[in-house]
Nucleic acid binder design. Structure first.
Lengths: 399, 399
DNA sequence: GTTGAATATTCAAGTTAGTTGAATTAATAA
DNA sequence: TTATTAATTCAACTAACTTGAATATTCAAC
């Protein structure tokens, strides 16, 4: 399974320039809306005339709408524009070994629809037919012709590529070893598709509509089956050479510590993850299934759960420290399939190293904060990826 | 001290398109030289006519030269081109607390000249006057009018920005807290300047002319004063939000372990760095000054040095594992101010985790290898940064 | 040996998208 | 009331790339 389409350096011409500039304008409108032509021209380095033409086109495509005139001191009042939230939608699909989740999101990142479908098995044919069902239930009726469907973001468990000894083998999908998921889903859904892992999708979701709005460089520690790290640097999603960047769950934080499913000792995942929480609770005779079980336990003040939080805080602090030292992000976000209250408690229990480059005085963003997108983050994130691709310009093109 | 000029998303126009396309063509020539117009056109997605015009211009600027016709099967023989190695030069300057190093490098990354100058103090005025002296001795006489001076890459110890409790305070330069090094050096050297840390510069040096040639995503573990990590992802240098990414020396690998100058316990730097080696040797009554002292000790089979290597291998293996898990690079390069023999021994002594995403079967690049640029890497790297910027296209522009 | 297909390169005209500078509109400040 | 300021539009212009035809050179087939 290979998802990492390497980008090839391509030249630019009038057509690609036009596409790029449309994205640039969309991106600036998104960040500063409502905003007028002149301001965008100043920021983007384009002439006001060019911006004017582009805005007219985007308005034609229903991606932008007028937001009224507004006087700001002397001169002609600015005619402001904003994203037309319902001018376009994106589909998000999360594939887990036992179920699939769907989400429909508009251009502003607002959730229009979510669904859950059981997944009897992981064979590509099964996944594909469920994906088609999700597509229908999300779009049929809800999506008029006026709404542009930008594409679908599919979130699947990694690792991707042929991996000798799989570090996260337990969560990998069976039967997908030799397939090209992008092609499979594009064929099934009949729209452009991007495939990412859950942590990356969650990170992008926070950037599109969450606590990372406006941030260009940040990390997302995602509690899924294990523990993943989504990294956005300078607005670009980091995938690594083989699509497996951010496998933080198997970083060793306690040499010689707890044995992990991957065969090593002291992996972060054996302390700070749902796997670790489940193990701790099982030791006390408590079985948990879903995240809401954990929520109930937390509300009830379960001793073993509190103990787990205390135990997890140390390794997690260490993980945050190394993320800060290696990536130097504006913030580290915690989120995923863990109740908000538990995440908040975990964050409060952190003891962050003072020597880190992040321990500077003048920082404005908190070093660690909880994600705002809740537990459906991954499916939303899939859709957010598509929105993000729509409004974030790049020049390199896919191979 | 602030070096991280955030890139602003700007629109494109004919002029910027032209600049971009020139870089694209230069980059492709660099990667595949000797190469003909038609092939570049196919790769870059430009028309042959466009490539033809651009090549004519680059030839005019003496950045490219003809490399003869070559028949490849049917058809008109390809008129091949290659970089004109001596068509342009870049200056590299490394600033250390006690000395400055200079390097002059041509378009192919070949070293034309190196020098060392003592640095009586770290005041900006002193550094600047020494930099001017380096500039003169490197360029005067050597550099005819036909050679274009692309700019200078300055390598300085971080961390950058106002840091409360400095993690690498011992190596930071005093008197630079409130200056803008880029502006200072651009003024002093009268050419475009980029400023980076040593590890990043070393990484880029390996990409321009070393073991990372042709790689797009890789990491460089740099033995300097401490231990730094240079990261190149998808051909882009990773700097972090505040210019301090890659501070791997202060990642905790042995919780509760050796006390570090940064105040924390168990930092990687206290095991695997020259600081650690020096401490180990001092414990055995051996004082070391330069890297060649270490080389002599190694040749003599010094027991304490061998012990240090054995002790460092564990933490270093752990570091490589976490780099692989977080960045998923094509390779991890070891280098810097440490003798090649010691680096080779260290690499041989590594015990890399099997569970990492890098432990896949089909990989072609070694997981860990020694850098090829030797000990002057940092100054060379400074120059390499400039070369790299010349041949690597991007669309985002500096603020 | 001649002819035709294949391939690279060049020539000349055409197209696209952005730029420039003047004109228009509408607000505030004097 | 008038001058100034600022956003937007209009119309002409321009830069850089694309297209399609022409040319050059080699290999392969007859």
């Amino acid at each position: 399974m290979k998802i990492n389409n390497p980008r090839r350096i391509v030249g630019s011409n009038a057509e690609r320039t036009r596409l790029h500039n449309r994205q640039v304008v969309l991106g600036h409108v998104r960040e500063r809306q409502p905003v007028g032509r002149a301001e965008i021209a100043r920021i983007s380095g384009l002439s006001t005339q060019a911006v004017s033409n582009i805005i007219a086109e985007l308005e034609e495509d229903r991606l932008l709408i007028e937001a009224g005139r507004q006087s700001e001191g002397r001169g002609l009042p600015v005619l402001k524009y904003r994203l037309n939230a319902d001018g376009a939608v994106a589909l998000g699909i999360e594939v887990r070994p036992d179920a699939m989740f769907g989400a429909l999101v508009n251009l502003e990142g607002e959730t229009l629809f979510t669904t859950r479908e059981a997944l009897p098995d992981n064979a590509p044919s099964t996944v594909v037919s469920v994906a088609r069902r999700i597509r229908s239930s999300a779009l049929d009726g809800r999506c008029e012709k006026t709404q542009k469907i930008l594409g679908a973001g599919v979130v699947m468990p990694g690792p991707f590529g042929k991996v000798g000894i799989s570090g996260a083998g337990q969560s990998a999908l069976h039967g997908w070893e030799d397939s090209d998921p992008v092609a499979v889903f594009e064929d099934a859904l009949d729209m452009p598709v991007v495939v990412e892992n859950d942590a990356t999708a969650a990170a992008v979701a926070e950037r599109v509509r969450g606590v990372a709005t406006g941030l260009r460089t940040f990390c997302f520690l995602y509690f899924g089956a294990g523990l993943g790290l989504g990294v956005v640097a300078e607005g670009e999603v980091q995938r690594g050479a083989f699509g497996n960047a951010g496998e933080i769950g198997h970083v060793i934080v306690r040499p010689g510590g707890r044995i992990c499913a991957c065969g090593n000792h002291g992996c972060l995942e054996t302390y700070a993850s749902r796997i670790a929480a489940r193990a701790k609770l099982a030791g006390a005779g408590i079985e948990i299934g879903s995240a809401s079980d954990i929520e109930n336990l937390y509300r009830a003040g379960s001793g073993p759960l509190m103990e787990w939080i205390e135990e997890a805080a140390g390794p997690l602090s260490q993980a945050v420290g190394l993320i800060e030292n290696l990536f130097d992000p504006e913030t580290v976000i915690l989120g995923g399939a863990m109740p908000d209250a538990v995440l908040d408690h975990l964050i409060a229990a952190l003891d962050l190293p003072g020597g880190s480059v992040a321990a500077r005085a003048e920082r404005v963003t908190p070093r660690v904060q909880r994600g705002a997108c809740g537990r459906l983050t991954a499916a939303l994130g899939g859709a957010a990826l598509v929105i993000h691709d729509t409004v974030t310009p790049r020049i390199a093109a896919k191979t």
